[in-house]
Design a protein around this nucleic acid. Structure first.
Lengths: 336, 336
DNA sequence: GTGAAAGCGCTAACAT
DNA sequence: ATGTTAGCGCTTTCAC
């Protein structure tokens, strides 16, 4: 590349000259490492503003080993959780002078690759949303005592990194309690993928909460499967071919719930009058469905808050934070 | 922050020592600025691999003014176009040694702020998806001759920057031609927001294409409005209270088309047998609806290709590329 | 084609 | 508290 075409940006030396102080003082004032707000400080700030000065991050990073960047790795931008997190995270990070470096990796190999790339850039902190089934403990451990790492959601694999996750148990409790409050007596659960540990765990929580609330369920109603519209549709059609049916269907994902609602419509059942439906993840289709769908929303704001707190804390003090999600009550589960 | 806890990463000097050459040669070999692949080159690469060496980007950037980063500004990660672009862009950029710096700004002020931040980081190129109604020409012009800037989609405001956009006319032509091929004789159009220039333009294209294909339409059928499910639903209900109805409904957005399909279902009409429906944007709901929805998909791959090509070209040669989108034909518009 | 050496802009260490 | 100075790791002249 040719040298910057127009005027090169002003350097700290020019600011120092204009403010009649040393470059060290300018650095100290502008980075807030100097306490007082006296005449000198004002002169420096004034000069910096006049010259439209902004630090050269490359030089700053080279000297101080602080890059003012945070790395984020996600499985895909179209993943609704990652997108929600991103929208909440970016403004919070960028409020200061930090910037977000993004890496996208659909599987374990790609995610590992991206984490290597981000760490070789010496990001000040790394946030990772692991893709389904990926085990990043090896690469996490590799950098764990150099930079703070926070895994958001998923299953914890490395015990040398921080973890911010969603308290699914509280979510399930909120769902069941809400349904009981709406007069529901019996409830079915359409779980996620059979092989997944998380699905099994959620399924167990469902049973616990149903029992605790004094509701009924039936093992024939509850099935594992893919998180697709088709699967929700098929399961529902099958459900209504059997002897009895529940007052409510709880689904492990909004897409399943969506298929459920389409099937109920086809069967001539009204939601929520005849049967109530609850989804999970609060994806865009939850608000776009007809009727609008009750769903569980990850507490993005608190997730970001905790994640950044753990990054400030620096490497070496791994801790685990579990946050209760928010139940977004909409038309599909409300008695009228 | 304390000095790196563990072993500090190896420097170019160590590589040079091990390979028994000067640091200059190492730099040249590793950056590909040296032609031959002789013994020296091999020795250097070998030494670099052995020491697990990777360049210090801060030092490299400080010296050469090349940061190996690309800045991207989008209105929101939950915007389906931005997410689709991101998923296609990241692997392409990251294939080399470049990294993606992301900025999110919902409105003109925020986007301007993010662009300033990215440019003060001296990104090697800037890609922007402007939020609806935002005019970024001022900030674009400010940096236009320092770094290459590419605006993706939206309305062109600055004539000093590159533009990669979607050829909506071709899209409309493809839709109408497809419908005509499915035996459709008359067609309605549910347009986007009334105030928008883009909506008006698309509406005009619709009329042109309908006429060219020898199809019929009716001014009472065609309405402007919000891109929401409710709006599609309401417009459809109203449509069928009138004297005649079309064989097909084309919508300016998938969410509108979705509402249309729900209304048709409620009216006892079958899609696609009785009436065909086409959406726009190929958002997740298009593939998730029942029947699956024919929609228009932005050509992400080509968009990224052209965008990066324009960035390689450097600043100062603004050009405009218009790319034909892809019509994704699904069940909602296919005769059976 | 290769090596020696300068220096990018900044901050940390040290001296005052 | 402020100034002086060295040097972070790299790329790029410049000389050979």
């Amino acid at each position: 590349m040719a040298k910057r075409a127009s005027k090169s940006p002003s350097s700290i030396l020019e600011v120092a000259t204009l403010a009649q102080v040393s470059t060290a003082t300018v650095s100290r004032v502008l980075s807030g490492r100097r306490t007082k707000d006296d005449d000198i400080a004002r002169r420096v700030r004034r000069a910096a503003a006049d010259l439209d000065y902004s630090v050269n991050y490359a030089a700053s990073a080279l000297r101080s080993d602080v890059t003012n960047t945070i790395g984020l790795v996600i499985p895909s931008a179209t993943d609704s959780f990652s997108a929600g997190l991103l929208d909440e995270l970016e403004p919070t990070i960028d409020g200061g002078s930090r910037q977000l470096l993004l890496g996208i990796g659909a599987d374990e190999a790609m995610q590992t690759d991206r984490i290597d790339a981000l760490c070789s850039r010496k990001v000040d902190g790394l946030i990772a949303v692991t893709s389904a089934g990926a085990d990043l403990s090896t690469v996490f451990d590799k950098y764990a005592d150099e930079i703070p790492i926070v895994q958001v959601g998923g299953r914890q694999r490395s015990f040398r990194t921080n973890m911010v996750s969603i308290d699914e148990n509280t979510a399930m409790e909120a769902i069941i309690r809400h349904l009981a409050g709406q007069g529901v007596r019996s409830v079915a659960y359409l779980a996620g993928k059979e092989v997944s540990f998380e699905s099994a765990e959620l399924f167990a929580m469902f049973h616990t909460q149903v029992r605790a609330a004094g509701l009924a369920t039936d093992s024939d109603w509850n099935r594992f499967g893919d998180s697709t519209v088709q699967r929700g549709f098929d399961c529902t059609i099958r459900l209504f071919g059997e002897r009895g049916h529940p007052d409510a269907i709880v689904c492990a994902d909004d897409t399943i719930a969506f298929g459920v609602m389409m099937a109920l419509h086809a069967l001539g059942m009204n939601v929520p009058e005849d049967i109530k439906v609850v989804g999970y993840n609060d994806s865009p289709i939850a608000a776009a469905s007809l009727p609008t769908m009750t769903s569980v929303r990850p507490p993005y704001h608190r997730i970001v808050e905790e994640t950044l707190r753990l990054i400030e804390a620096g490497p070496g003090h791994p801790s685990h934070v579990s946050l209760p999600p928010e139940l977004i009550v909409r038309a599909s589960s409300t008695k009228r």
